[in-house]
């Protein structure tokens, strides 16, 4: 029916203007596409892009307690940060924390994924156990470890004492606190990282191993020559995610140490939180947030630039 209609119209015009029809169709499909994307775009704009811009803007101002800007001070917030020993300590702790957590998370999870990838009876049980920490929230995990690290009744010190070693002030000794927080974090990360790496291992074609078996390759040779290269895209992804997560650590600190002792665990997000919502210095906090954003941007960029080249894609 509609075919007839259009044709009759066309006949009256005599010549169909295809260009115009095409243009109209293109406009229609653009509107349709935007309608599908609009909900996401609006929310991204309000809760991601606008705040990003606003944060940069705020970082050049002093603010009152309600977060309204009072005095424009240019780069002064940044200058203050880089001359503040507390912030420099925070940066140092953050980088050390990344250095402690990322490699160990990956190595441990990879090891677990490899032994959980063998075809053995009851392997499903172990997979569930390994991935269980993914279901444990930051708050719960921190509470578990808060007890484990407890100086007098904590399990770790009890074990040390029965072995005849003096107890450690896990969360009270500035030399140990960051290390203790890192252990907690690694434990929490294992579940997710394990799950992703196991998925990566399972997607490697078994015929690769079978043909290596025929060639008489040993277990470690296969790991080095097949598993690691074939797993490299997954590893690449996992490393990126773990690094970014490490920079965004907050919950563990809030429950375990509140940034102490003597600021040794005052990681950057916790520092931002304290500056903004305890000290109400939103300008300075925003400057820190901008730095955090830049660091993560650089990290992702470096990852893609240097990581991707070594990655073997199938």
């Amino acid at each position: 029916m509609s075919l007839e209609n259009i044709v009759i119209q066309d006949a009256q015009i005599g010549q169909i203007n295809f260009e115009q029809v095409k243009k109209r169709q293109r406009a229609k499909s653009f509107i349709k596409g935007m309608l599908f994307l609009l909900p996401s775009i609006i929310l991204f704009s309000i809760f991601l892009f606008y705040p990003l811009g606003r944060t940069i803007y705020l970082s050049f101002f002093l603010t009152n307690a309600a977060g309204e800007t009072t005095v424009f001070i240019g780069w002064q917030n940044y200058v203050n940060l880089f001359t503040s020993p507390i912030f420099m300590q925070s940066m140092k702790s953050t980088f050390l924390f990344v250095l402690y957590t990322v490699p160990f998370t990956i190595i441990i999870s990879l090891f677990l994924a490899m032994i959980a990838n063998e075809k053995l009876k009851g392997i499903g049980f172990f997979r569930t156990v390994y991935s269980s920490t993914m279901g444990i929230s930051v708050a719960a995990a921190s509470v578990f470890w808060l007890y484990l690290f407890h100086p007098s009744i904590g399990l770790l010190n009890m074990i040390l004492e029965t072995l005849g070693i003096d107890g450690i002030g896990w969360l009270t000794d500035p030399d140990w606190a960051l290390f203790a927080v890192s252990i907690t974090t690694i434990w929490m990360n294992i579940g997710f990282t394990f799950l992703i790496l196991l998925g990566g291992l399972q997607s490697i074609d078994s015929y690769l191993y079978e043909s290596a078996d025929i060639d008489g390759a040993g277990y470690f040779y296969k790991v080095r020559r097949i598993t690691i290269p074939m797993l490299s895209p997954t590893l690449f992804f996992v490393v990126t995610v773990t690094i970014i997560n490490a920079f965004q650590t907050f919950g563990q600190i809030d429950i375990l140490t509140q940034g102490g002792p003597v600021n040794s665990t005052n990681l950057v997000v916790y520092s931002i939180y304290r500056e903004a919502f305890v000290n109400y210095k939103f300008g300075s906090a925003s400057a820190q947030a901008v730095l955090l954003f830049i660091i993560i941007l650089i990290m992702t960029f470096l990852q893609f630039k240097f990581g991707e080249r070594k990655v073997h894609y199938q």
Binding site: Y50, P51, L58, G67, F247, Y273, A276, S286, V290
Partner: peptide, 13 residues
């Protein structure tokens, strides 16, 4: 864009 880096304006919003 880490959500943590934009919590201040989000909180105000």
């Amino acid at each position: 864009v880490p959500f943590e880096a934009s919590i201040i304006p989000n909180f105000h919003t």
